[in-house]
Amino acid sequence: MLILTTLLAPAALGAAFQEPTPRFAAPVELTSAGAPFTGILYPSPVLRDLDGDGRRELILGDLFGALWHCAPTAGSSTAFGERGRLEANGEPLELNNW
């Protein structure tokens, strides 16, 4: 049996839509260097090919205003390498936060 959905639209919210309800497979946790992405406060992910090599890196913003990135692991869609900071002129990028 397919494990499909923890993800169903509440009828009350879906009333305005005529399109079919999208359904998702059970979520798979992404990893960095073999371990889950724990320890990042409020991680906000973006998958994007930043270096133009045809593969998407994972970029994560965090609560403190830091931006992290990690390279994809060959042969996997959910595994990534060690994370490092995005930098500007050799210094870690850091946005103001309180």
Binding site: P20, P43, P45
Partner: peptide
């Protein structure tokens, strides 16, 4: 309580209706 990142792959209608392998 810990943080993480998850991937939710959308199932196509054809996949949803398909009989599970070996079922």
């Amino acid at each position: 309580r810990t943080s993480g990142v998850w991937l939710f792959l959308q199932e196509s209608p054809a996949t949803e209706d398909a009989a599970p392998t070996g079922a």
